[in-house]
Design a protein around this nucleic acid. Structure first.
Lengths: 239, 239
DNA sequence: GCACGTAAATTGGTTAACCAATTCACCGTG
DNA sequence: CACGGTGAATTGGTTAACCAATTTACGTGC
């Protein structure tokens, strides 16, 4: 009567375990920096198999919220209690972003990237960016258009020498692209896009942050307006 | 001759598998949107146990780079090839951020949050923020000081009604706090911090984005200067 | 020769038993 | 009474066998 179900409610059970851990934290049964109950204990308390408990803990570890010590136990990160709780909640919410928020942040990060790039680029950076630019021009009418467009923006983010900007941009990009595709946005003519990219690159090379910011802003003008008009889009993610 | 090793080189083997998948992608052996080799196949190809292969795939799935289909296989996300490769590389690098980059981005995100908050707060938002403010004042000399300080900033991020800003801020906060603690930064007098928080909240309530931005900037002035002076800090994370 | 159904092979998902390192309590010794 | 060591119990880590759903290939019947 194990009543084996081949379904994949793994996600739900993992979420249950994570929620359980959040409750432990909320009820002060474990404090930040302290040891969590053993995997077997959690498994017994929640009724979830140990493998799934393990999965949940590993997930939390990948967010740096717990550290699993090989033969000793799992300890909570020693951040402020509220920070832990909110981050756990954020994981449980599943990161469903709306289009407008995404576009705002993309604007924010890329603007900073472009400015920093203009201020402190090295000669090697210039080479990289011109290569990305040329790559884009060569493919602007081919099937790799989106690919190379993305690569150009990413290269700038890399050349701005701020690792956080680069990584966060990589992180939100899939969601942004998903919306673009779904909403059939980005109808600008290829030639215009090339010109806009060129203008941005030009300002960067001239070490002109304000000009670069302005060029980026007009590059994003259409999509910004579109996003502002299309807020409250149904959020659906995961590939 | 199984030569059982109780060590935890799990991380290294998982990384090996992820690197293997990146190579498949780089060599065009699998394209975005296509099916990956079966877990058992990957396990045989890499010499890593299937459980670890599984772990690697689940990690990639948690970043939305692959989707695991219950009894059918794992398929790559259909983003641009370059995007996938760079995101995988980013995971392999392990997200080691330097202090200066973190502070720059924190500035960026919180500035945007404060402005948005001033522009479009609701009455309920005001209640939440004043409650967070009061909470901070009540604990400014107690052991929960950092906790409540953090909670105040987070509440603003939540009230700005941009889910991406909120989540990204939550995401980088542990790293920021880690640096603060390690570098013994944040030596400002408690009373001054209260005043600065009050000023920010005041501007938000008056729907004055520029004032709020200015108040935030002076709130962050010390740490910004400190971070700029202490770049190239050795990056060490995970709790 | 084509279409359909069936069975075998392949897939991810799950479990339980086992391993070694660590922890901890207890007991003996100084 | 304090200290140190030893062994049992507990910990996370690993493995291999097994499950059901899906896919695939084949053979049968039309």
């Amino acid at each position: 009567m194990t009543e084996y179900k081949g379904k994949k409610n793994t996600e739900k059970e993992v979420a249950h375990v994570i929620r359980h851990i959040r409750e432990l934290l909320e009820n002060d049964e474990v404090l930040p920096g302290e040891r969590l109950p053993a995997e077997r204990k959690i498994s017994a308390d929640t009724g979830v198999s140990r493998a799934k408990v393990r999965l949940a803990l590993e997930r939390l570890e990948s967010y740096s919220l717990v550290t699993i010590l090989p033969q000793s136990g799992s300890v909570l990160s020693s951040q402020p209690r509220t920070a832990l709780i909110r981050q756990i909640s954020s994981i449980l919410d599943g990161n469903k972003y709306d289009f407008n928020s995404l576009v705002q942040v993309r604007n924010l990060l890329e603007t900073a990237a472009v400015r920093l790039c203009a201020e402190r680029h090295t000669p090697e950076d210039i080479v990289l960016m011109e290569k990305a630019m040329q790559d884009f021009v060569d493919n602007v009418h081919g099937p790799l258009r989106d690919e190379k467009d993305f690569a150009f923006h990413t290269t700038i983010a890399r050349c701005c020498h701020n690792s956080v900007i680069y990584h966060l941009l990589l992180m939100i990009t899939p969601d942004v692209l998903g919306f673009y595709r779904r909403l059939r946005a980005c109808a600008t003519l290829p030639e215009d896009v090339v010109q806009e990219h060129l203008k941005i690159l030009e300002c960067i090379k001239n070490s002109d942050p304000d000009g670069a910011e302005q060029a980026l802003k007009s590059h994003f003008a259409d999509i910004t307006a579109f996003a502002a008009a299309n807020t409250n889009e149904v959020p659906r993610f995961r590939l």
